[in-house]
Design a protein around this nucleic acid. Sequence first.
DNA 1: GCGAATGGTCAACGCCTGTAGAGTGAGCGA
DNA 2: TCGCTCACTCTACAGGCGTTGACCATTCGC
Lengths: 189, 189
Amino acid sequence: MTERAERRRRTEQRILEAARKLFADLGFERTTIRAVAKAAEVDPALVMQYFGSKQGLFSAAVAIAPAPVAQGDGGESDVDDLVEQLLGSLGLKMGELPQSSLAMMRSMLTHPEAGASARAVLSRQIHQVGESIPGGDARLRAALMTTIMLGVTVGHQLLELDELREASQADIARVLRPALRAIAHPQAE
Amino acid sequence: MTERAERRRRTEQRILEAARKLFADLGFERTTIRAVAKAAEVDPALVMQYFGSKQGLFSAAVAIAPAPVAQGDGGESDVDDLVEQLLGSLGLKMGELPQSSLAMMRSMLTHPEAGASARAVLSRQIHQVGESIPGGDARLRAALMTTIMLGVTVGHQLLELDELREASQADIARVLRPALRAIAHPQAE
DNA sequence: GCGAATGGTCAACGCCTGTAGAGTGAGCGA
DNA sequence: TCGCTCACTCTACAGGCGTTGACCATTCGC
């Protein structure tokens, strides 16, 4: 790779990292192009030149391939595996949920584009979870399992509730596991 | 009450209603004083005069006495009652969660003051729920029950996920009930 | 080496925002 | 009725924002 191209790639990466951090911490509106540029030690105009607009920068900063949830055939053990997978994804979230995800979540309630992205990601996950659990109302159960994970993640990562920050990942998983299983396994009532 | 005072009270109320609607729909940053004034058919300067600043308007629009959760002594039936209460508060949220609450929730991830308010409200609820359930880790269990309700409410009210909008309040409560009970009732493992 | 391409900067524009202060007219107390 | 209070409006300012186009300086292809 030519030296110029290499240099450009690095600069672009530096801008994206700064943008992710600021978007994740402050959200879309409070993050300014000027602040991103300063954090990346670059002129604001360069950010525009590379990403076209603030929205373009946001899209580029948030864009990632979401890790897909493995699918099963609805059998018993697969359902429990699914629960463990969800809990595990929360575990990942404890220390090092990617900045891009945090950035999207931070803005999903106030920035229309981020909201649309969040809906897409969640719908996708709901669909996948729904295919992995039995029962006629699998869709609703999957939606609730997903929003439960969303709520815990928001409370822990974004609101930083002390009551959750104090607990270890294992403790949270231990308490949450029976709840998720109760939803995943349909019972006759 | 004198005519002038009456008139003022009505105007102030009109401004607050417009502000709540806009804050709930758009969040703090995207809501402008000018837009609130226009919706209330009033001059922008009047909004400032009444509430001092945009932040003051937001505080006034969001300020409400949160309905306290009744407390029990940790007995079996009380715990189930608590679960029903939480599910009921979600039920209230279905059609007509007050605009002031929506306004606070909408901005809680991106506006520092709203975030602080949200943390205060949630911590209060966690504390109350924690006092109503038995077990050594009641605090953590209460936090998770609370964030679960938060996640479902956010997904339903703010993100407006189709999978939740399609379901009736009773359906959601039916699926969620065992999950909350599983967390509320500590089990030896 | 030399012109072209390209990474990067500088200065500025136009817009929108929250906010301030002077002004107006109608209802109030005496 | 008179003067004052107070609800309300008009106009304007200062600052920050996203965005733009002209401008350097280095490196590429030939």
